[in-house]
Every structure is written in structure tokens, then in C-alpha cells.
Computed example of a mutant assay.
Amino acid sequence: MSDKPAILITGASSGIGATYADRFARRGHDLVLVARDAERLAALADRLRAETGVVVDVLRADLTAEAGLVQVESRLREDRRIGVLVNNAGVAGHGGFLDQDPAAAAALVALNVTAPTRLASAVAPRFVQSGTGTIVNIGSVVGLAPEFGMAVYGATKAFVLFLSQGLQQELGPKGIYIQAVLPAATRTEIWKRSGRDVNALQGVMEVGELVDAALAGFDRRESVTIPPLPDAGQWSAFEAARIAMVPNFAQSRAAERYRASA
């Protein structure tokens, strides 16, 4: 058993989650892997145990179901070895807003919004009590770009970014590190599941490169990591413009441009 904090990763059976598991195992961290596909989880766990010698626990859970969420919440509250939560599980939408089935949209919100919120809420009090801990939330650049035309999916990822930044403001001073990772198109199974051909997309990043970049940001303790963004100054300028607006929001009168002229 490692003396390093254990890592709980959701959506760990493939893609970004499985790659995070591989990278953290090679750093010497024990793992708790969460996903619905027990067979694939078991195969990944067996490989990582054999290759790295770390302890790997498998937790089969459907995070869109109450029972699954409660199961993972309990593990996060009770297992004091876990010092890092990687909220990776997610799903993408298919088609425009008018094409989406309401039930599918609700399931998307449940997995992309409700699950990471509840899991962060389960582990945060324990992290604060100990004065240390990390929550990594996997968002998307789509949450910054309504022009991409993925309204519900983009809205869930905008939520993930805001949640991460809000938690960093609240929990950062208590010793907790929060990282939001914003990938662009990445070669994972999420595209096939949403009915899209990843080979028809431009600028698709390989999953290993994405996770390695995210971990570079993790090591630097970045609050927001955007692996495909070439110019970090653009994000800094974006944030500076947003922060400059904040003091102007507290006004007792509507802005002059909205008041009818006398």
C-alpha cells in the first residue's frame, strides 16, 4: 500500500479516466476506479497491479442512479486514504437542442452536473478537516463556446468550470486544490456513444497527450488547465476582463444605456 494519497477516478474504464489511472499508478498512487463496466474495470485493474504494484480497488457504479451515487459518496466520506477525486465521468449530447430527447438531456445533466457536484460535496468536508486534498473536474472548452452548437452539453461543462472556480475560491484558503481541465475534441469513446464519427472531426487530440498536459497543469497547481490553448495569455486576458467587470455588478441603478432619456 502506497503512502501517497489514493486517487478515486470516475469514468475510469476507458478513455481519459483509464489514462489518468495509468498515469497516477505509475506515479505510485493506489487507485479506486469507478465505472459501470465491471469487466473492463477489472481488466484495467489487473494490468495496473501487474505493471506498477499499486493497490487498485474496483467500484462498479452507475452515477446516473441514486444507488450508484450513494455508493461512491460513502466511499469518499469513509476512506481516508483517498486524497484526490477525479470527476471524469461524463457524456456528450448528439444533435442540436431541438433534436435532443428530453430524457436523454436529463440523463446528460445527471451525469455531467449532478454527479460531480454530489461527489465533491461528499469528500470536501473530510478534505477541509484534514487541511489537504484535491478535486479535479473534467470540463470542456465547449463550456466557453456556444458557437459550437452543443447547448445542453456546453451548459453542463460551463457549470463544471464555474463549480471548480467557485470551490477554489471557497476551499482553496482551507488547503484544498481544485483543478478544472478543459479538453477540446479528444480521441475517446464518448464520440461513438453520442453517435458521431471522431475521424470526421478536426484537431482531435490523442488521450495520452491530453492527460499528460492536464497532469502538467496539476503539478503546477493551475486552477484552470486548457491543454489545446496555445497562448495562455488569452485565458489570462479573458479572466482579467471578467474580474474587471465584477465591481460594476453592484449598482443600485440600471446602467445609463438602459434608462429612457428624459
Rank of each mutant, 00 (worst) to 15 (best):
V113S: 10
T114M: 12
R193E: 08
F24Y: 12
S236Y: 01
A115W: 04
S194V: 08
W235D: 08
M205H: 04
A25K: 10
K192W: 00
S140D: 12
P183R: 09
A89K: 05
R75N: 01
A45F: 05
R81A: 09
S121E: 09
Q202N: 10
R49L: 02
R81P: 00
S164W: 01
A232R: 14
A155P: 13
P125S: 11
A104E: 10
L33E: 02
R36E: 11
S194W: 08
S140G: 14
D219I: 07
V211L: 05
V91T: 08
A104T: 07
E209L: 06
L48P: 08
R26G: 12
R196G: 08
S2C: 04
I243V: 11
G233M: 13
G166V: 10
T10G: 02
M150N: 14
T188W: 04
A151F: 11
I7N: 03
V54W: 02
V109F: 11
D22G: 01
S130E: 15
G143R: 15
T19R: 12
R187Q: 05
V34P: 09
G195P: 00
R220N: 08
R80T: 12
E51G: 08
P227R: 07
G133N: 07
A124I: 13
S74Q: 13
A213L: 09
L144A: 13
G11P: 00
E170R: 08
P173W: 06
A260S: 13
R49T: 15
A185M: 07
A120D: 06
L44E: 14
A50Q: 14
I226L: 14
H29S: 09
G166R: 12
P5H: 06
A262F: 03
E239D: 10
A92Y: 06
L229I: 10
Q129D: 15
S14E: 12
V58W: 10
D22S: 05
